[in-house]
Design a protein around this nucleic acid. Structure first.
Lengths: 354, 354
DNA sequence: CGCGTCAAGGTTAGCGCTAACAGTATCGCC
DNA sequence: GGCGATACTGTTAGCGCTAACCTTGACGCG
C-alpha cells in the first residue's frame, strides 16, 4: 500500500509536522512509537506482554507514553484482539444492600485481574433485564454474571447463541449445562420456620413482598415446614408486589392489628420489612417476642442493633459474588471450574426478637 | 488497494462461501447487509440514523438483524465514530446509600439518552481515584462525573489534558472553569448546630468519621456556628478516620460515657452513626433528647423510624446525580449548560431526637 | 563450521464500524 | 426542458490496535 500522505499534506510543512495524534487529540500508540523511534507493535507489547520487550526499552516506552499523556484505546484493543476485558453483571437492585455486597465481591475478584465491570440494574424485571443484556452484548463482554433464574426466552436465546461464559448468582441451578453459585433460599425459609416452631410458636405468619423468585423460594421453605408440622394456614400469608422498605414493614404491623390477625409470630421475607415491623411494634407497645415474634432474612447491619435485636438468616452474598466471579474467570481463561454448582450455605442467627 | 481474497481463498469454494461472520462467531453488519442485499452502511444507518432509511427497508433490516442474532459491536462503533456513548462515574463508596441514590439519578438521566455508565469506586482514596481514572480513560468516555473536590495533581492533569467534559458532584466549586452540582455541606453543619442552640443545648459535641472533605465541611459549619455563639470547645470534638457504621456510632456513645463527657447534645456527621448512637442510648437507658440530644446527617430511610426518630439534614443526592448528568449531557452534546454551579440546597428535618 | 535455538523487534493485514463524499432517481417548477 | 431540491443508497478510506508471521543477530554445541 502506498501512503498518500505526501499528496494530501503537501500544502503543509510536510517534513516537520508533529505526530498527528488522533482525531480526538489524544496521542496514539504510533505517536509514542515515533517518539521513541520504534514500531507501534513494540509499544503494544510493552503494555500487554512486557516479557517480550527488553526491560530497558520497555521503561523508555512507558516513560515516553506517560510524558505524552498516552492512554491506550480500549475500543481499538477490543476490536483488534476480540477481547474486551469486560464483564457484564446484571443485578435486580442497587438500593438493596444484598446486591451491593455481591457487587463488592465481584469487584474484588475481577478488578485485580484487569477486568472491567459493567453494572446493569433490572429493577426485578426480566424484560428490563432482556433490554439490558442486549445493550451490554454490544460491548462484547468476555463474560456475564446474572442474578437468579428468572430470564425471558429471548435472554436465554441471546446467551446460548452468543455462548459468552455465564454464571448465575444467588439461586442454584440443577441444569448441568449452567453454572451457578448461591444458597438455598428454600432452606433459609425452612430454617427460620423450624426455629419458630421449636420456640413454641404455632400461628406463624409470612409476609412476602416484591415476589421475586428468591422471596417465593423462602415462602416455599416456610410453607413446607409448616405443612409438615400440620400448621400451614393460607390466611396467615400476605403477598404484596410492592418493593421492600422499612415503611412497608411498619405498615404491615398496622394492617395485622387492624385485621385482628391471630399470629404469634411473623416471618418477614427480608430484614428491611422486619426492621420496620420492630420499629412499629416498639411504637405501638407490642412486646416482641412475647406478644409477637419477628423473623427476618439477610442479616443487614442494623439488625444486630434494633430493640429487640432481630433473628434472621445470614446469606453469603459477598462470597457469592466473589466465587461467581472466580468461576467466571476460570471459564473466560479456558479452565474448567472446579464445580459447576456451588452452594455456599446459610447461617441462622438467633437473636432477641424470637 | 487490491483485495487479495481471490488468491487466498482460491483453494476454497470461493463462490459459494457463507457470510463470514467474525472471528467471534457473531454476525456482523456486513452479514446482515449481504442477507438483505444491500450495503453495510445502510444497516448502520438503520440503527443509528433511522430517518435516513426508507421505513420499509429499515424494518426489513431490523427483522433480518434480529433473526440473525446480530448485535452491533460497540468497540468498532466507538473506534470509527470517536464516540463511546459512555460516561465514567467515580464515587467514593457503594455501600453508602448517599452515593447509590446519586447513581440512580445519573442512571435515570443518562440511560434513556443511550449512554452507558461505567462506575468506579474509589473507597475515599484520591490515589485510588487516580488509578481508576487512568483505567476508565481507556474507554474514551464522552464525559466524566467526579465526586468531591479532592483529586490528585495527576488526576487533574489527565482531565485537563484530555479535556473530556467533566462535572463535579456533591461539593460546589468556586473555580469558574469547573462545573459542579451539589449543596453546601458547611451550611448543613451550621443548620444542625443552630437548631441545637435554639433548642437550648449548650454543650454540643461533634463526631467526625471517615474525615473526607464533606465530613470536614460539616464540621466547619458546626465549629463556625458554635464559635459565633462563643460555645466552641475542642474537647467535645471526636475525629476518627474509620469508615462509618452503626456499630461505630454505638461505640461512640460507650466511649463518651466512659470518658465522662459533659455533652448535652451530639451532632454525628452522618445518619449511620447517629442511628447506632440512638440504638445504644436505648440499650443503656439514656433518655434522648432529654439527657442527650442526637443529630445526624443525610436523612436515611430508617431515620424516620428509630425510637426516637432522628433529627437530620436531608441532602438532595438523587437530584445531584440527575442534574450533574443533565449538565454533562449539555456539555457532551455541545450546548452551554444553563449554569456552571448549581446549588440544590438542603432540607433540615427536625424530629424527636432533639 | 554449520545448524538449530532463542531473544528482540518489525511488517502486514484486518478487526467491524462510520465519516465524508458520491451517485442516482424522482419530483416540482419556471 | 433544464435546473435545483429532495430522498435514498453506495463507495472509499481509515479509526487505533493486535494476531500472525517474518527478520535479524547472537549464541551454543557437536
Amino acid at each position: 500500500m502506498t501512503t498518500r500522505d505526501g499528496d494530501r499534506a503537501s500544502s503543509l510543512t510536510a517534513k516537520t509536522r508533529k505526530p498527528r495524534s488522533s482525531r480526538t487529540g489524544r496521542a496514539t500508540m504510533a505517536d509514542v512509537a515515533e517518539r521513541v523511534g520504534i514500531s507501534a507493535i513494540t509499544v503494544s507489547r510493552a503494555f500487554k506482554r512486557p516479557e517480550l520487550v527488553a526491560p530497558e526499552l520497555r521503561q523508555r516506552i512507558l516513560d515516553t507514553a506517560q510524558s505524552m499523556g498516552y492512554v491506550p484505546n480500549q475500543a481499538a484493543s477490543a476490536l483488534a484482539s476480540a477481547r474486551s476485558m469486560t464483564v457484564a453483571v446484571l443485578i435486580p437492585s442497587m438500593t438493596n444492600m444484598v446486591f451491593v455486597e455481591t457487587m463488592a465481591g465481584i469487584h474484588d475478584q475481577l478488578l485485580p485481574r484487569g477486568y472491567q465491570v459493567l453494572i446493569g440494574v433490572s429493577h426485578y424485571s426480566p424484560l428490563e433485564e432482556e433490554r439490558l443484556i442486549r445493550t451490554y452484548l454490544q460491548f462484547q463482554p468476555d463474560g456475564i454474571l446474572l442474578t437468579g433464574t428468572d430470564h425471558t426466552a429471548v435472554t436465554q436465546t441471546y446467551l446460548s447463541a452468543l455462548r459468552s461464559p455465564t454464571v448465575h448468582m444467588m439461586e442454584l441451578l440443577d441444569d448441568p449445562d449452567s453454572l451457578s453459585v448461591g444458597c438455598s433460599q428454600e432452606e433459609g425459609g425452612r430454617l427460620m420456620t423450624t426455629h419458630l416452631l421449636e420456640r413454641g410458636y404455632r400461628r406463624i405468619g409470612f409476609v412476602a413482598v416484591q415476589l421475586d423468585p428468591r422471596t417465593m423460594a423462602r415462602f416455599d421453605g416456610y410453607r413446607n415446614a409448616l405443612t409438615e408440622a400440620g400448621l400451614y394456614d393460607e390466611k396467615r400469608v400476605w403477598r404484596l408486589p410492592d418493593p421492600s422498605s422499612i415503611h412497608l414493614g411498619a405498615a404491615m404491623i398496622d394492617r395485622m392489628m387492624a385485621e385482628n390477625t391471630d399470629c404469634d409470630a411473623v416471618f418477614f421475607c427480608n430484614d428491611d420489612l422486619a426492621q420496620g415491623a420492630l420499629f412499629q411494634c416498639q411504637r405501638r407497645g407490642i412486646r416482641v417476642p412475647d406478644q409477637l415474634a419477628i423473623g427476618g432474612f439477610n442479616d443487614l447491619p442494623a439488625s444486630a442493633w434494633t430493640t429487640p435485636t432481630l433473628t434472621t438468616v445470614a446469606t453469603p452474598r459477598y462470597g457469592i459474588g466473589r466465587h461467581a466471579a472466580a468461576m467466571l474467570l476460570d471459564l473466560m481463561e479456558g479452565r474448567e471450574p472446579a464445580q459447576r454448582r456451588l452452594d455456599l450455605g446459610l447461617t441462622f442467627i438467633a437473636r432477641e426478637s424470637t
